[in-house]
Design a protein around this nucleic acid. Sequence first.
DNA 1: AACTTGTCAAGTGTTGAACAACATTTTGGT
DNA 2: ACCAAAATGTTGTTCAACACTTGACAAGTT
Lengths: 240, 240
Amino acid sequence: MPSLIRKISDYRMERLQVHRVSVADQVAGILRQRILAGELRPGTALPEVSVSAALGVSRNTLREAVRILALEGLLKRDIHRGVSVSHLSIADVEEIYRLRRMLEIPAVYAARKPSVEILRQMRSLVDEYEAVVHARNWVRAVGVDFQFHTQLIRFHRNNRLESFYQKLIGELRMGMVLVDRVHDDPGGLIPVHREICELLAAGELRKCAVLLAQHLDDSEARLRDIVSRYADLRRVRTGT
Amino acid sequence: MPSLIRKISDYRMERLQVHRVSVADQVAGILRQRILAGELRPGTALPEVSVSAALGVSRNTLREAVRILALEGLLKRDIHRGVSVSHLSIADVEEIYRLRRMLEIPAVYAARKPSVEILRQMRSLVDEYEAVVHARNWVRAVGVDFQFHTQLIRFHRNNRLESFYQKLIGELRMGMVLVDRVHDDPGGLIPVHREICELLAAGELRKCAVLLAQHLDDSEARLRDIVSRYADLRRVRTGT
DNA sequence: AACTTGTCAAGTGTTGAACAACATTTTGGT
DNA sequence: ACCAAAATGTTGTTCAACACTTGACAAGTT
């Protein structure tokens, strides 16, 4: 595995940078990506031997990667029974959205003097979202959507909060990708996101907060719907 | 190591419960405890070979434990350079206290109809705090203090928030135990905590929030002081 | 038939040893 | 005194083996 990395870059600088990440972290990244892309669906078991063999790393390394993802909430570990991709329950969705409200809405007010940098980022993310939706790349769209909200959180200027928030939306993302078909109206978010930017720039924080709250409600309702529908589907398939 | 556990309990019930925790988790628990007790001070290096030998576990197992604590923020990993107990900087303290305010004050308002159970817990924790301070057990006092605030957070009824909060105060605790001597006035918290309980019970949420905010400010100032003093001390000792 | 009791395979938990990769220190030369 | 190259000690990673659980199925009992 390390030799593969070596091959990609011969330049000393790059090699150093790439190499600073341990293999375990890289493996965690790969698995995270596959989970968030919906490739590994909730409930999928990840037997250590076969997975480590498939990825070309040792069992121990895979274990470290799994430990990371388990602490992130993406994988579930049942002792002596193996790991599997976590399920997102309605309760989880509700819990996470209560947190999003608790964190994102104050973020708007924290943007009293909004950072130009963050605002610029947000605007470019809206553009990117538009492009991605146009290209009908739904998985990527979900990612960009969440990046937009992460920028919002950055107004708090708090690293711990930011990484916690990213962990949260990581879990949500796992639920979002359950639908391979377009979820209701993915393009509908564009004007909302754009208006959030403008209201922030104009200092209309109250209006912005209201709009955001409403946006979050919508988003939660949509995800609830997806999750409950998926739960039914699973129930039927399992025969419970 | 596992066989040792077996010996302790022959009863099936107990054995099941004990054995559900992997050795790695147990080791993480031990290390966490020693760090939070101030036994392992910030900056202390933890060489894998010696530590694993001392604890009687393999290097791989210790590594898993270290991975857990690193993700909790208690240990710092520098790749190829080993792990050490994290330092708490003034910036960290400030960041964490901003989060505490953001989370605890809304918790008061979330206690509009306060759970009897939580309130009971809080009161008994105040009593315990009193007893512990009387016994001059400062390390334990810090722990009980933080347990009190954790109960406050429980009004949010949000598991993810709770574990995030516990991670946060875990980091603070590491700073708190830097002083082996009594920090200014450890008994002074008793009436404050007690009044917070009473105001909550009486539904005087606004007053309670104000008091809590003030309490947090005091607490932050005290910790800032400790940390900066310790940083000076370290600077002198290191000769920088 | 329903219930308990072996037995077995498959998987995880843990270990120890070995080697590779890296940071730091020491060495050796100038 | 300075700098590059080698030695050192540590972590990162792999491998192979064993101990221990679990789940499922077969065998036996009531």
